[in-house]
């Protein structure tokens, strides 16, 4: 048997041993997973960012301007001392500023404007028929918004709309929960597929 498959199979069984109860084998496998993930991520970050984008061009290609991000990066570590921690505010401010500048227009356009425009559909279709799904979308949007409108008491028409809104929300939660169950089961099935197939060779 391939050594990699053997290790993977044994580690899968070690993790599933938690279903019986917490035990040292499970904890060892869990610690290994965490350690490996962090180590792997660190190496990738070092290779793809610190080395490729900073140290190599700085030292080999005389990219002297790269000292600016290097200093800004080092300023982040000033948080470790109380006296100099104020220095870290400068790179943080830059990051937040640049991040917000890039994110706000993109998110406003993609998450709000485009989605709102997709909600406003003609109720009558081109062939003259009535578009029932467009009606459901309109009712769903209005009643769900009514539910989240908290500055007015949910009484009368507003109360009834909010009530209908909760049904739409429940359908959404139900669908999401159902899909999540499906997703978690798929993970289990994937591991069983591996254990029965590659590890134990019980599948044809």
């Amino acid at each position: 048997m391939n050594l990699g498959i053997l290790i993977a199979g044994l580690l899968t069984l070690a993790i599933y041993s938690f279903l019986y109860k917490d035990n040292p084998v499970y904890r060892a496998a869990e610690s290994l997973l965490i350690g490996l993930s962090i180590g792997y991520t660190l190496v990738l970050f070092w290779q793809s960012t610190l080395f490729d984008k900073l140290f190599y061009p700085l030292l080999r290609e005389h990219g002297i301007w790269l000292t600016i991000p290097l200093i800004l990066g080092l300023m982040m570590f000033s948080r470790l001392t109380r006296k100099w921690s104020w220095l870290s505010r400068i790179p943080i401010a830059l990051m937040i500023g640049a991040g917000a500048g890039a994110a706000i227009p993109a998110m406003l356009y993609a998450r709000t404007l485009k989605q709102v425009s997709a909600t406003v559909h003609p109720l009558i279709m081109e062939n003259g028929g009535f578009d029932i799904s467009a009606v459901v979308v309109v009712i769903g949007v209005l009643t769900t918004l009514a539910y989240f409108y908290f500055t007015r008491e949910h009484k009368g028409v507003m109360g009834k709309m909010a009530r209908v809104g909760t049904y739409f929300l429940m359908i959404f939660f139900g669908a999401t929960f159902g899909y999540t169950v499906m997703s978690r089961l798929s993970t289990l099935i994937g591991r069983i597929d591996f254990l029965l197939g590659d590890f134990l060779h019980l599948l044809k």
């Binding site: 989605q115 425009s117 999401t176 899909y179 999540t180 997703s183 978690r184 798929s186």
Partner: peptide, 22 residues
């Protein structure tokens, strides 16, 4: 599969062209 409902509105609006879920 757990992410399908998150992306359903984007499929409906056409921002996400299509998806294979779960």
């Amino acid at each position: 599969a757990a992410m399908i409902t998150t992306y359903d509105p984007y499929l409906a609006s056409g921002q996400l062209s299509s998806a294979v879920g779960g």
